[in-house]
Design a protein around this nucleic acid. Sequence first.
DNA 1: GACCTGCTGCGGGTTG
Length: 712
Amino acid sequence: MSSYNLLSEPIRKYIAEQNWSELRPIQNAAIQRILTTTDNYILSAKTASGKTEAAFLPILTDVDFSESGVQVLYISPLIALINDQFKRIEELCEHLDIVITKWHGEASQSAKKKLIKNPNGIVLITPESLESMFCNRSHEIPHLFSNLKYVVIDEIHYFDGTNRGVQLNSLLYRIQKRANVNFRLIGLSATIGDLESIKKFGGRPLDTKVLKDSSSKPTSVSFKYFESKGGNNYNLDLIKDLFKEVYNNKVLIFPNSRGKVEEITHYLLKISKQGNLHTNFFAHHSSVDKSLREYIENFAKTNTYSPFSICCTSTLELGIDIGSVDKVVQIDSTFNIASLVQRIGRSGRKDGQESKVVLYNTNSWFLLQSIAIWELYQQGVIDSKTNAVYPFDILVHQVLSVIRSRNGITQNELINYFEQNYSFEHVTAIQIEQTIQSLLEKQIIEQTGQELLISLEGEYIVNSKDFYSVFESEQMYKVIHQNIVIGELPLNPMLSEESKFLLASRVWRVILIENDSKKIIVQPANSGDKPTFYGGPVDISHIIKEKMLEILISKQEFDYLDQASLDALKILRDEFAVYKLVNYKIDRPLKHDVNKTELYTFASSKINRTICLFLDFNGIKNDYNDLENSIILKLTTAQDLYKLFSKFNIDSKEINLYLKEVIEENPNIIDFSKWGKYLPINQQVSLLLDAYYSVEETLQFLNNIELKENIL
DNA sequence: GACCTGCTGCGGGTTG
């Protein structure tokens, strides 16, 4: 039977009205498989290939919405995506009598109350709102979800390998337990790196199948090279070239940081105004006020004819609906392949159109990284993030949430509950007990009779609105002009009264800083600096670093490079030719200089960080540059380094003891994790070794490499 | 050189 015939009458009617000539491959496959099996499915297909419909056409056919209780739970990482999908699903349900409810922090309270009173239909929610449901409406969970048939997770790759993903998986387990229900899971994504890891969502990896439409849109690419000379400032020629590239098109520009977004938007606007051309240049990032961002998104979506450029960070990387753009500009390399795939997918969304991407680079290492990522993308390789094997920090958060939600639970019940929780599959009962003991010792929880309860101290933590998320957020000051919020900035020492900065593509002068209400009052000004934002380094995966070396030592030519890129690549290749590297898996350059030695690792950021940990442990001073892949040491020979590496094969007890000392001396080291500080010290050590460093992998890497030296 | 994500419930006021 054709997949169309499997669909219910109202759904077929809907399809007829859409004037679709045919169903897309991913839709056909999904309808067939979802309606004829009981498996979970991950639907993977390129952006704008109709994945939402692929999930909902069969689900709407399968589910009897006249029954009470929420039938379908759609989970999204972003509020903006929920708002977009709400409209789409509403259209899909036009001929069906189905209630659709948005449930997130900015959704209507009355709609939520209505759902509680009469739970049914489809609910669209964020993981954090789900967490809050367990905390504040625990007794409603069975009533809401005991008839749940499907959970749909949108942009599921975004959760994979992240703390938010561990939290989400734990929440799915908690729904199953609390509402005593078994649901099917449908995950949607355009970019999947690690299939095995994604299949674990929902706790039935063996019954979770992947439907993948690997067809990709033709993409035209060009690389341009404008070296930045001194400091962080862009080469003026880059800005002029960029202007020519964008001013007559609809474009998204991704320069990788909020400060650079402001800088580039400012320059482009300036050039355009000088030439009396249009002023549709926008800055879009997390520090620009939400209403302003929505205005920009809406401008892009509704505007059919006029050209515009939105300069943005990853805020416009996921599937928020802004319509189609003509081209995507990436300035310096993305940090991973999935990011590039998502960004490219934003152009040429209409059928038959090709995607267009222009990659600018401002130094040769970024150029090399960009080529590596582009080549891997062409090969269909996507890099993936990996979770900690023992995510103790999320465990501590979930333990607190469960105690709060249950309003008292015995220790044995709690241990048993988390032993079965598939989100913590490798964590043992003894380890769970240690986590609980630590919370008791730190007096976050207390024991009353047989039951564990949140203590007075703990109430402050679990009752704070900051409790629901597993990621940290810094204190921000609102930037206000004439009672209108422009955006928000972290307060830094550079910012004082009379200082000037760029935000939302305009220059502002600080009039007043109100510390109590966390406000910065500003007025427009003529010139100013880009604002300073705090941000940690972003890890680069091993396959990208390895590919960079492969390209560096090969003679491979790339026809998408402009002359300046070719020249820059040649200089870098010539520089490394002296090492006579043959095998990119094994050979690593060791550069002897007049008073220092540089080890070029071409390894993942995590491995580099771990090598530095080993060096610190052995009292060897080192300096590390992730972009250039190099660890700088005092003068040393390859023989000395081999000797040192063999010493790294140390008893893990020693490194544990060392890390304990490090943590005791500097407790802030654990702050890379929001909930890490509540863990016992041995679990803090484990978390560092597991999530921050990578000992096994690093030892394997060091045992495998052969150093190739230059002769001074 | 350095992304992003989310957030309760209540009480008091205003509006239709």
